[in-house]
Design a protein around this nucleic acid. Structure first.
Lengths: 167, 167
DNA sequence: CGACTCAGTTCGGTTTCCGAACTTAGTTGA
DNA sequence: TCAACTAAGTTCGGAAACCGAACTGAGTCG
């Protein structure tokens, strides 16, 4: 495996492939921008936070700026690159809501102009419709097939051949 | 911070909040299902792989089944819960493609019925359009505002107030 | 019988994580 | 002016996780 090479998922994980990094970015979306705020909000050890912020700034998803000279105070703001992580956070949130939350989702995202709940969907512009994961194929050295077992207590049967799927 | 409590992103990270877990799930989508295959594909230490597979099965995103009795052989298949992680993987891939890949994206996902490139978009059913991250608000104890700096070399200025944003 | 495969477990060494204490620069209140 | 306080880190020692390599055990193949 080349270090963060051939697969974009791997490359992406090189930047946000750790629990804390994602939570720090979530905080950034929430408007939590200062070292001490993040520290308090997440309960992350300060040394680790300092480390992660350095990495995230280095990767280009956060920007460190001094917003006050006396005393010197800093904040970490989303860059465009960082802001575009939101589909990832939105999908994580939706998945957690659906499969892990007991009862009501803790947070609901809204489309601010109209107040409708945000949806994130796999969409096909040609077919003009949303579709689900089983309809994904990939183009590369692999070929088709993402279909797996059909329920969460999957049916038995089906041979052990390993057709190559997406991603 | 309650351990994996109030925020669905945190809960989700409790299941796939580690680099290896996500790569193992990606392999599952690719049709790589056997212990030895995953080990070889990822270069993950066997002890760690055994650990992660236990966790992922325990969490309900993979199902371990014996597909052969003599000799006993096992495979790990996606459950429905696992399959529905795909929007997360798709967004990770798109983000990596856009911001980290030099040149062509290593893998392109296609809508299998028609061969069009897969898109994943924030969508509003009321406005009948896709929109971008700056138009997200949340409903909970926080209020609006996700707007941050506007470029990847963000403009200076703007006060240090921390309006609460989404997620 | 010997070599091989799969699916792990065990082992020692290295890296990372963690919480607590410390630092440095500046501010506020008495 | 001195003490207490805050923000943004750094330093420290112990605990946990990670790593590659070696080992295990069930079963197969020639």
């Amino acid at each position: 495996m080349a270090p963060f090479g051939q697969c974009s998922i791997e490359s992406a994980l090189g930047v946000i492939g750790d629990r804390w990094s994602i939570l720090i970015m979530r905080d950034a979306f929430r408007g939590i921008r200062r070292f001490s705020e993040i520290h308090e909000d997440l309960g992350i050890p300060k040394a680790v936070l300092a480390d992660r912020l350095r990495d995230l700034v280095g990767a280009g998803v956060l920007d460190k700026r001094q917003y006050m000279d006396h005393p010197p105070r800093f904040e970490y703001r989303l860059t465009n690159m960082g802001r575009e992580l939101s589909p990832i956070l939105v999908s994580l949130m939706h998945w957690g809501d659906k499969w892990l939350s007991a009862g009501d989702p803790p947070t609901v995202l809204l489309h601010s102009p109209c107040g409708t709940e945000v949806e994130i969907e796999l969409h096909c512009r040609t077919c003009q419709r949303d579709f689900d994961p089983t309809e994904i194929t990939s183009r590369h050295s692999w070929s088709a097939d993402t279909s797996e077992s059909g329920t969460n207590e999957p049916e038995t049967g089906e041979p052990a051949t390993a057709p190559r799927g997406a991603m």
